[in-house]
Amino acid sequence: MDSASYPTPDLAQSEIGLMMIDSVAVTVKESMPPQVMVEINGMLNDGCTAFHEAKQSVEGNTIKIEVTTIRPKDAMCTQEISPFSTTIQVDAQLQPGEYTILVNDVAEALKL
C-alpha cells in the first residue's frame, strides 16, 4: 500500500492532548462473547483541534480508554468549542464480573 496516498498529520508539527470528556455511556450487546460498546461525548477545544485516537488497555478490572486530540502547533484558530461523539467497541474478551471503564478522567461502571 502506498502511504503517500493516505496523508497523515506531521506529528512534529502537531500538539497531542487529552480530549475533554463530558459523558460516557456503556452498552452491552447480547452476543457470545458479549460486545461492550462505549459511547464517548467530548469537546474539541478550538476550530483547529480534531480527534486523534483512542487507545485501550485493560488493567485488572479497569478498562482504560485514552482519547486524544491533535492540532497544529502555533496555529491561529477560531475559539469555537465543538462537540464530539464516537462509539468504541472494547477490544478485550471480558469475563463475567464488575468493571470500571475509565475514559480519560471519567469513570463508568460495567457489570457483565
Rank of each mutant, 00 (worst) to 15 (best):
M76W: 08
M19K: 11
E66I: 12
P72E: 10
A4F: 07
K55L: 09
Q93P: 06
A4D: 04
E30A: 13
G97M: 10
E98D: 10
L102T: 14
K29T: 09
N61A: 13
K111V: 07
Q93I: 08
T87N: 08
I63T: 06
A50N: 05
E108K: 12
Q93M: 12
D46Q: 08
L112M: 15
T62V: 14
T87R: 11
V103I: 08
M1P: 10
N41E: 13
K55C: 01
M20C: 05
M20W: 05
L94C: 09
C77V: 02
L94M: 11
L11A: 04
Q93A: 12
N41R: 14
Q35R: 09
P96T: 12
Q93D: 13
T78H: 13
V103W: 01
V36C: 10
S57L: 09
S5M: 13
M1T: 12
R71E: 10
I65T: 03
T86K: 12
G17A: 11
P72R: 10
D74G: 01
G17W: 00
A75W: 01
A4V: 00
V103Q: 05
E30V: 13
S5Y: 14
E39A: 12
V106I: 14
S3T: 11
F51I: 09
V58T: 10
E108I: 01
L110S: 02
T49F: 06
K111G: 03
V90M: 07
I70T: 08
S31I: 02
S31F: 05
I16S: 01
C77R: 06
C48L: 09
E59H: 09
I70N: 04
E30C: 00
V90K: 04
Q95T: 09
M20V: 14
T100N: 07
G42T: 03
G97C: 07
S5W: 14
K64L: 06
D2A: 06
S57G: 11
F84C: 14
K64D: 07
A50D: 11
V38Y: 03
A92W: 04
D22V: 00
T27W: 02
M19H: 03
T78S: 15
K29G: 01
D46C: 13
K111H: 14
A75D: 02
T68P: 04
S14M: 03
K55T: 12
T62A: 05
K55Q: 14
